[in-house]
Simulated assay, not measured.
Amino acid sequence: MFSTKSRYALRILIDLAQQKSDDFIPLKDIAERQDISKKYLEIIAKDLVKGGLIRGASGKHGGYMLTRAPEDYSVGEIIDHMEGTFAPVVCLEENAGECPRSGVCKTISMWTEFYELERNFFYGKKLSDLL
């Protein structure tokens, strides 16, 4: 299950993409259009800026904008940034050490298949597909 942070992050990015503007879009406008608390969106937007997914500017003409074209964002990278790994089990996480049960584990092939299906699905979807 994905958190509201991930779902709202997608909504922020979709909203920014729909504006088709070279100007910064005020967060209060996004909050109104998306019917989400501006306070909560501030937390999510800061995380998106930190991850390089959007740019922010403060001041009178401040707000947020995409850092690249909508077709250059995968849904997977957005969810990955907000949630962390897609790995359904610890032994499939990036930089996981050798699992002591890898030689006898009867479920690893199932987890690996699920992981690849999920990852390929979300990384195969582009932000532009959601517009």
Rank of each mutant, 00 (worst) to 15 (best):
Q18N: 15
G52H: 10
Y8R: 15
D35Y: 06
E42D: 08
K38F: 01
D47R: 13
D22W: 11
G52Q: 06
I36G: 06
K50F: 14
E32V: 04
I36C: 02
R7H: 15
A9K: 02
L41K: 02
D23V: 03
A45S: 12
K28P: 00
K20A: 14
R11P: 11
D23L: 06
L10G: 04
I12M: 11
L13N: 01
K38Y: 05
I14R: 15
A9V: 09
I30Q: 01
K20I: 13
I12E: 04
L48E: 04
D47W: 11
D15F: 15
D22R: 11
K50N: 12
L53N: 09
R11D: 14
L27Y: 00
Q34K: 13
D47Y: 06
E42A: 05
R7M: 15
L10F: 13
L48G: 02
D23T: 02
L48S: 01
L16Y: 08
I36L: 10
Y8N: 15
I44Y: 05
I25A: 00
V49R: 05
L27C: 00
S6K: 08
K39L: 01
A9N: 05
I14S: 03
Q34N: 14
R33D: 13
K20D: 15
D15M: 07
L16P: 03
F24K: 04
L13C: 08
F24N: 02
V49N: 04
I43Q: 13
K5D: 13
K39H: 04
Q34M: 01
I30Y: 02
E42H: 01
I30T: 11
I30L: 11
L16K: 09
G51E: 14
I36A: 06
D15R: 10
Y40N: 07
Y8C: 03
S6C: 09
I14E: 09
K39A: 11
L13A: 03
D29F: 04
K50Q: 15
I36E: 05
A45R: 03
I44P: 03
I36S: 04
D23K: 12
D35W: 03
I30M: 10
I14H: 09
Q34H: 05
D23W: 02
E32T: 07
K5Q: 12
R11C: 10
D29E: 13
S6W: 12
L16T: 09
K39Q: 10
A31Y: 00
L13G: 03
K20T: 13
